[in-house]
């Protein structure tokens, strides 16, 4: 049984039928408008990112890590040899170090072979390692994304770039980096250069594959038919798809760079400055002596922690950067 609908009583308004039901002229400009809730890409990224508890924790920890990496060394300058003459200051466990020097953050991980505070050493090393990682990732991805986009779009570039990639992929990456470090002096700049010189090609290649997959989708064909310029298609139609992919790769790249640096310093090609890799590397000697295990486990675990935090934030951002997760 259909329910009887109640009509709105218009007699109380005191208007005539002509006044109530006048023809509205057609607004041609409104025809093109689609009414949708206001959408801001970056605000949505922020919202999705912060809606996960793990992301918030990781972000908070990242702030702490970055503060210790870049701000903490301003207050406590690290000098490896400050306690060199003090024989009693070497190889101390945290408890012994605190007992000797009094309680301070610096001593909570004990001291190393020259009596240096392990805590300070780690952050000092992390500063260089993280700087290398961020710089390499920035360079590699800027070059990689631009070249990858071109590579995916232009057929003629594709032929040439495929051959270049074939050549570069044959050479072991370790070799390229080591030859660079051997040829030039082992400095910060050299290491960044060495890690970037071939690093971008794999990024560009994976981006090229993604671009090719999406390039010929129907909506892009339609867009092209409607006269959209290639640049517009690249930046407006395809780039949003790529962002989550790129951010996810960046997330793995930063810990990857820290790992590469650690590896290079292990095989004796590291730079002369103090880095995480160098600390981990020298710490392994402490492992064989009973009572010195702290010296090994602290840097190893802390470097692992720093890498994981960087990775988690990156991965969370990668998920949030995907426009498909923005639906309410």
């Amino acid at each position: 049984m259909a329910e009887k609908k109640t009509c709105i009583d218009l007699s109380g308004t005191g208007l005539t039928d002509e006044e109530l039901f006048a023809r509205v002229p057609q607004d041609t400009s409104a025809v093109e408008k689609i009414v949708a809730p206001r959408y801001s890409y970056w605000r949505s990224v922020g919202r999705v990112f912060l809606s996960k508890r793990l992301n918030v924790i990781a972000l908070a920890l990242l702030v702490v890590v970055l503060a210790f990496t870049y701000i903490y060394p301003m207050f406590y300058t690290y000098d490896k040899f400050e306690n060199l003459m003090d024989a009693a200051a070497k190889h101390l466990t945290p408890a012994a170090a605190i007992q000797k020097f009094g309680f301070h953050l610096r001593w909570i991980f004990g001291t190393g072979e020259s009596g240096q505070p392990t805590f300070d050493a780690i952050w000092n090393g992390a500063r260089i390692s993280i700087s290398i990682a961020i710089l390499c990732t920035a360079i590699n991805y800027t070059v990689g994304v631009v070249v990858g986009a071109l590579w995916g779009f232009a057929k003629r570039v594709d032929v040439v770039m495929n051959e270049i990639r074939n050549v570069i992929s044959v050479v072991p990456g370790t070799l390229v980096t080591s030859v660079m470090v051997l040829t030039f002096s082992p400095s910060f700049k050299t290491l960044v250069f060495a890690m970037c010189i071939t690093g971008w090609i794999s990024i560009a290649y994976s981006l090229r594959t993604q671009v090719i997959i999406i390039r010929d989708r129907e909506y892009n064909l339609a867009s092209k038919c409607l006269g959209t310029s290639t640049f517009h298609i690249a930046t407006r139609n395809i780039l949003p798809y790529m962002i989550s992919f790129i951010v996810t790769m960046v997330a793995t790249s930063i810990p990857g760079c820290i790992g590469t640096e650690a590896f290079l310093s292990y095989i004796g090609l590291g730079i002369s400055e103090n880095t995480l890799g160098k600390i981990v590397n020298t710490a392994q000697g402490a492992l064989t002596v009973p009572g010195w295990e702290w010296e090994f486990w602290c840097p190893v675990l802390l470097s692992a922690f720093i890498s994981i935090i960087l990775f988690l934030v990156g991965q969370g951002l990668g998920d949030a950067a995907d426009p498909r997760t923005h639906m309410l």
Partner: peptide
Amino acid sequence: VIFMIAVPSLSYFFMFKAIAT
């Protein structure tokens, strides 16, 4: 998986060596 991706391989190789010892 995240642990293995994020942690520098040098670190965990040393870790496993320590544990094995």
